[in-house]
């Protein structure tokens, strides 16, 4: 059976329509009526406090979980359609928080080859894909290393390479930096930025605002509901709302708030440079 090909070029890469989900029949819903689209090539960040449903949502994008009601489509194909499970998994790759949850073999290149091997690709194609994927994440020089000898950030990049080797259209990163130190997080941020630049659709689930502000759009989850969708500038400048959602207020917004309460005329901005300039201006005006 072929997937529906009913829409034009504007077809979203990912589409959630009124998605409800709970893990057990007598539990409350973890997702309650989630609706949003992600355009092809878009970089979207999903933020929310613990328990907001972020990871559950991520597992819906590649069909690891399917909605109790409502629909999730990836590239126009419904994840709930058992005929297309393979196609969905191949088009949306999910990288988990802990790289150790997804590393399967001991040598880096074998680990990255695991996914394409399962796709049944010819050996010479696999060799090419493994090299491409490892170069993309900056780990080609570690291809023959033991995974156990790598740092957490390096293991996470190998895990991403394992997904990239399957050549997905959509990359979903579930809190990729949560268990890494700042240097490891910077490395992952760079990789996700570069992938996005190559045209890949990137969805990153994160609690780190420095990751979220890099996205084109931010989706805020609150106890299973979409509490807001907008650009980082729209979402992250509303300090009161962020606090009530249990989210961090970015530094430039906090500082701007503190300066205005002290009578200094500075704008509400996410951009530190804009804030610096405004401060310097008010210093010379006085």
């Amino acid at each position: 059976m072929e997937p529906r090909a009913d829409t034009g070029p504007a077809r979203p890469a990912i589409s959630f329509r009124d998605v409800f989900f709970r893990y057990h029949d007598d539990d409350p819903h973890v997702l309650s009526g989630i609706t949003f689209d992600v355009a092809a090539g878009e970089h979207v960040a999903i933020v929310g406090a613990n328990g907001s449903g972020k990871s559950t949502l991520a597992k819906h994008i590649n069909g690891l979980l399917v909605p109790d009601s409502g629909t999730v489509t990836v590239g126009g194909v419904s994840t709930g359609d058992p005929h297309h499970t393979y196609q969905v998994r191949a088009s949306a790759g999910l990288v988990f928080q802990n790289p150790d949850d997804q590393v399967v073999t001991s040598i880096v290149r074998d680990d990255v080859a695991f996914g394409p091997e399962n796709l049944g690709l010819p050996a010479e194609e696999i060799v090419v894909r493994v090299e491409d994927a490892l170069r993309t994440v900056g780990m080609w020089n570690h291809a023959d290393d033991d995974v156990a000898a790598l740092s957490g950030g390096q293991r996470q990049r190998v895990a991403i390479a394992g997904i990239l080797a399957m050549r997905p259209d959509v990359l979903v990163l579930d809190e990729p930096g949560a268990m890494l130190d700042p240097r490891g997080r910077r490395g992952i941020r760079r990789v996700s930025r570069e992938l996005h630049a190559t045209g890949m659709t990137v969805v990153v689930i994160t609690q780190h605002m420095e990751e979220a502000v890099l996205a084109d759009r931010v989706i805020v989850l609150d106890r299973g509901h979409v509490a807001g969708i907008g650009t980082p500038a729209e979402i992250f400048t509303d300090a009161g709302r962020l606090r009530s959602l249990g989210l961090d207020v970015p530094f430039p917004v906090l500082l701007g708030e503190a300066l205005r309460s002290r009578g200094l005329d500075v704008p509400l901005t996410l951009d530190e440079t804009v804030l610096e300039e405004a401060i310097c201006r008010s210093a010379s005006i006085r």
Binding site: F251, L254, L255, A258, L259, S261, R262, G263, L264, I279, S282, A283, S284, R286
Partner: peptide, 20 residues
């Protein structure tokens, strides 16, 4: 902290004004 920084910036701006 952000609060301590805001105090320091306001002081620095005031000092600038006096020098001028």
């Amino acid at each position: 902290t952000v609060e301590a920084l805001a105090d320091a910036i306001v002081r620095a701006c005031a000092d600038c004004g006096e020098v001028r």
